[in-house]
Design a protein around this nucleic acid. Structure first.
Lengths: 202, 202
DNA sequence: CTCGAAACAGACTGATTGGTCTGTTTGTAA
DNA sequence: TTACAAACAGACCAATCAGTCTGTTTCGAG
């Protein structure tokens, strides 16, 4: 295998991710990406079939990282024996990393992808759906365990689990609009408080 | 004043709003808008200085309607004497209109606007900020009254108030990704349950 | 009826777009 | 060292873009 193309490919993805999160997908031109990545058109279309193929690859990588963050939070709280306490600690884990996340990116790639129907209908949104389903399943398991241990009725557990994703995305937009990244931590704090009260972890 | 231009202007805004919500702002061309509105380039640039000026006008109108929905919900629950009960009824009001909203639009214009940095930095996002602030203030007042009447500590009331906006936007994205508009009602239901528990309205 | 400005219509333009094509460089296996 | 494919560079192209310009229509004031 000649010349390690994977490195350049990653450089393109890095530059593209930054630009797409910042300006949106349609508003980001291939030429802009090339300039930012310091590479050429030949390289780009060698690694990607088209611009929408870039979106696919971008989302694929982002989803993998996203699920990685979920696993990290699950692992970090795995030793907590009380299921309700674990749910609270799980959310608090994200609160603790909120500043770090928001300083690295001013928005979520999912927002940029879901904004454009062409990406939703061509299958790129399916990748986001996968992430949503993984989050839902893992968190629903945590919540079900907590509900059982505290003998509480949480209603629609899947919907409650989805509310974590909803809080993240909504908070991203709130931060973006106000230019105040601190909202992310605050909204995760709201989520934690609400869950703690509901689970009786006062 | 010759020929009622306001009518045609509204037609352009209607067509543009639909296209921008569906495909995003940058992915929507002026020509597409003209075709959908059944008008011409001359008409468009007579009513709008530029394409970004269209975004401004679009957002302005959307914000007005958005705040209108807030007022409607406030009015509809104004007769409820128990402040905590009113908060719950306030959220339930949006639950009841969730299907209607989601059948009319598959996403929120705010998402499309906030996706593109050019619109965030040129002042269009400031219009969204105004809407956010109005919602925050009105809901914070409701929450403060409820907290006082039930003698509860809600923590950061502004952040809790913002969580309504956060839930809306997050739910829009969840619906959009999964193609399941029912998530909107479900997420508002989650929000209502969490607030009811926190306010002690069981 | 006239006249002037607002309200349009649509051909046109220069810049930018995603994508192609030809040619060159690079690394490796034989 | 040669052979070959992957990795890349960049000129090039047709299409589309936002925006301009010239001319026409519409309508209300005088």
């Amino acid at each position: 295998m000649p010349k390690n193309g994977a490195i350049n490919r990653e450089r393109i993805l890095d530059a593209a991710q930054h630009l797409v999160i910042e300006n949106g997908f349609a508003a980001t031109s291939v030429d802009q990406v090339l300039k930012a990545a310091g590479t050429s058109k030949g390289a780009f279309f060698h690694h990607f079939d088209s611009k929408v193929d870039l979106a696919r690859a971008l989302t694929e990588r982002y989803v993998t990282a996203d699920i990685g963050h979920l696993r990290t939070a699950l692992d970090a709280t795995a030793s907590i024996s009380d299921p309700a306490e674990r749910v609270v600690a799980f959310v608090r884990h994200f609160e603790d990393s909120a500043e770090e996340v928001m300083s690295a990116q001013s928005n979520c790639l999912y927002v940029a992808v879901l904004t454009e129907q062409q990406l939703v209908s061509n299958g790129t949104a399916d990748l986001v759906n996968h992430a949503i389903e993984v989050w839902r399943k893992e968190i629903a398991d945590l919540l079900t365990a907590a509900a059982t241990s505290r003998d509480r009725d949480l209603g629609d557990v899947d919907a409650l689990a989805d509310h974590v994703f909803v809080t993240f995305e909504g908070a991203f937009l709130l931060c973006r609009s106000t230019g105040t990244p601190e909202h992310m931590r605050a909204q995760l704090g709201v989520l934690r408080r609400l869950l703690a009260t509901t689970l009786g972890t006062a």
